[in-house]
C-alpha cells in the first residue's frame, strides 16, 4: 500500500512549555522512520497528535495529500503499538489480533484467515489461545504488532518498542521487528530514545531535541555530517551511555 505522510509546521504548547516547535517531517511510502531523542523532547506528543488523541495548536498533517487534522482516532486507520504493548488482558492473543477486524464486521472466515496469516508473520502459531499474562515480553510485542497490522494500517506508529524487552534478547527482537514490518510493507514511524536502537532500526532518523527536529537523514549522513553539536552528542551518547545527561 502506497502511503506518504507529511507533517507541516506542527506546534503544541502545554501552558508555557512548547512541546513541539514547528515540526515538519515527510515520511516516504514503506519507509521506516525513527524519531530519536531524549525523554521529554516531544516525541510522544508528536505520536499522540499523529494518532489523533491530541490536537495540535497549529500546523497540519497530510496523508497522501489529504488533510487529516480533523479525522477522528477511529477513522485514521493508523496502527499503534504503545510502549507497554497495551494488549487487552481479558482476551487471548487470537482475539487481540482479531479485534480490529471484528470491529469492522468482517465475515468470520475472513477474520480467521487474516489472523492465521498474521500469527505466522509474527511466528506465534500455537500461542493463539494464550492470554497476555501467559506470554513473554517479546511474544507480547509480536501480538501487539500483529494486532496493529491486522487492520492494514496506512501508517504504523511504534512507541519505544524495545523498552520492555530484556537485554539478552533485544538484538534478536530488534532484527525481527524490522524484518516483520518490512515484509508487511507498511510505512512506519518509530519513536526511540536509544541511539543504538535508532541507528540499527531506521531507514532514516529524525533527531529531536526540546520540541524541535534538529536533523533528518540516513544513518550514514547523520554520522558523517551531524549538523550541530547536540546531534553529535545525542548520536554519540550510546557509545558512552550518556543518554539522559545531554
Amino acid at each position: 500500500m502506497m502511503t506518504e505522510l507529511r507533517i507541516e509546521e506542527v506546534t503544541k504548547r502545554y501552558g508555557e512549555v512548547i512541546a513541539l516547535d514547528r515540526v515538519s517531517l515527510n515520511v516516504q511510502s514503506e519507509e521506516f522512520l525513527v524519531v530519536m531523542g531524549p525523554s521529554g523532547c516531544g516525541k510522544t506528543t508528536l505520536l499522540l497528535i499523529l494518532l489523533g488523541v491530541l490536537k495540535a495548536d497549529s500546523g497540519h498533517i497530510y496523508l497522501d495529500r489529504n488533510l487529516i487534522d480533523n479525522v477522528s482516532v477511529e477513522n485514521r486507520n493508523f496502527g499503534y503499538v504503545p510502549q507497554d504493548f497495551g494488549l487487552f488482558p481479558h482476551m487471548t492473543a487470537h482475539d487481540n489480533i482479531a479485534f480490529g477486524l471484528r470491529v469492522r464486521n468482517l465475515p468470520k472466515a475472513d477474520v480467521e484467515r487474516r489472523v492465521g496469516e498474521l500469527l505466522s508473520l509474527v511466528e506465534l502459531q500455537g500461542m493463539e489461545q494464550r492470554r497476555p499474562a501467559e506470554l513473554s515480553g517479546g511474544q507480547r510485542q509480536r501480538v501487539a504488532l500483529a494486532r496493529a497490522m491486522a487492520i492494514q494500517p496506512s501508517l504504523l506508529l511504534l512507541d519505544e518498542p524495545l523498552s520492555n524487552v530484556d537485554e539478552a534478547t533485544k538484538s534478536e527482537i530488534r532484527e525481527k521487528l524490522k524484518e516483520t514490518v518490512k515484509r508487511a510493507g507498511v510505512t512506519t514511524i518509530c519513536v526511540l530514545h536509544d541511539p543504538g536502537d535508532a541507528l540499527t532500526l531506521g531507514d532514516r532518523i529524525a533527531v529531536m531535541y526540546a520540541g524541535k527536529i534538529l536533523q533528518i537523514g540516513t544513518v550514514q549522513s547523520l554520522l558523517e555530517k551531524p549538523e550541530n553539536e547536540i546531534v553529535t552528542r545525542l548520536l554519540a551518547s550510546h557509545l558512552f551511555r550518556w543518554d539522559e545527561r545531554i
Binding site: L51, V73, G86, P89, F99, G100, V103, I151
Partner: peptide
Amino acid sequence: RSGLDTIARTLGCGTRHLLLWILLPL
C-alpha cells in the same frame, strides 16, 4: 488512564464496541 481505550479506538472501535468489548468486560 491505561490507554487501552485509545488502542481500541485506533483499531476502529466506536463507542458501542468500546463499551461492550473493553469497558464492561474489564
